[in-house]
């Protein structure tokens, strides 16, 4: 899972940073007897910066094309779900939602392995529209912003119940703002 890989990557990088700093700290303690300092510091600084620059460029090149804005951009969605967030509930509907008289459907079923587009907006404050799978893992999200419609595209790979949680702080009942739908 993506989050686990991210966590492991972070632990490895944090561990390397800690080891390097500790090694450098200990080297200064040992220098009490004989001080040597760093040889060719300018050259080492250059190579350190260049290597870091190359690593950053590799990561940028590898990750930016995977940004959500480009995923499924050329495909036509099989289903469109309109979402209006309002303190403290999500209204979901297959039809466009009237902001003056918002209403939705209580039960939504979505197809597996087909492209679904959520058209997400808010009728009051900013909300988050975050989808959690049946193992309670955050799989994707988008913001619900008043006056704008954000289009989130996703292909569900597993059947089951998916939960929607609000991930943008929206007031006193933010923590209970939720909904769900089925994927079959």
């Amino acid at each position: 899972m993506q989050q686990q890989s991210i966590f492991v990557l972070f632990l490895v990088l944090a561990g390397i940073a800690t080891i390097v700093f500790t090694y450098i700290f200990i080297s200064s303690k040992k220098a009490a007897a004989e001080e040597k300092g760093m040889s060719n510091p300018l050259k080492k600084r250059f190579w350190f910066s260049l290597i870091l620059f190359v690593i950053l460029c590799i990561f940028i090149t590898a990750t930016i094309p995977k940004s959500p804005y480009y995923l499924f951009a050329d495909e036509t969605p099989a289903r469109v779900i309109h979402v209006s967030a309002i303190q403290f509930q999500f209204i979901l509907s297959e039809k466009a939602i009237d902001p003056e008289n918002p209403s939705g459907e209580s039960h939504i079923e979505l197809p597996i392995n087909e492209l679904v587009e959520f058209r997400v907006t808010s009728l009051d404050v900013n909300h988050g529209f975050a989808l959690y799978d049946s193992s309670n893992r955050l799989i994707t999200q988008v913001q619900a912003m008043p006056g704008y419609v954000n289009r989130l595209r996703y292909k569900f790979k597993d059947p089951g119940e998916y939960k929607i949680l609000c991930l943008e702080y929206c007031g006193m009942a933010h923590q209970v703002m939720r909904s769900s739908f089925m994927v079959n």
């Binding site: 993506q2 989050q3 991210i6 990557l9 972070f10 990088l13 944090a14 940073a17 990561f59 990750t63 930016i64 995977k66 940004s67 959500p68 804005y69 988050g128 975050a130 955050l138 799989i139 994707t140 999200q141 991930l167 943008e168 702080y169």
Partner: peptide, 19 residues
């Protein structure tokens, strides 16, 4: 900073944002 750079990667942010 390392954790921030990880989070500032758009394709990671989609599963980390506001967690």
């Amino acid at each position: 900073g390392l954790a921030a750079v990880i989070d500032s990667t758009i394709s990671n942010n989609i599963v980390l944002h506001n967690t």
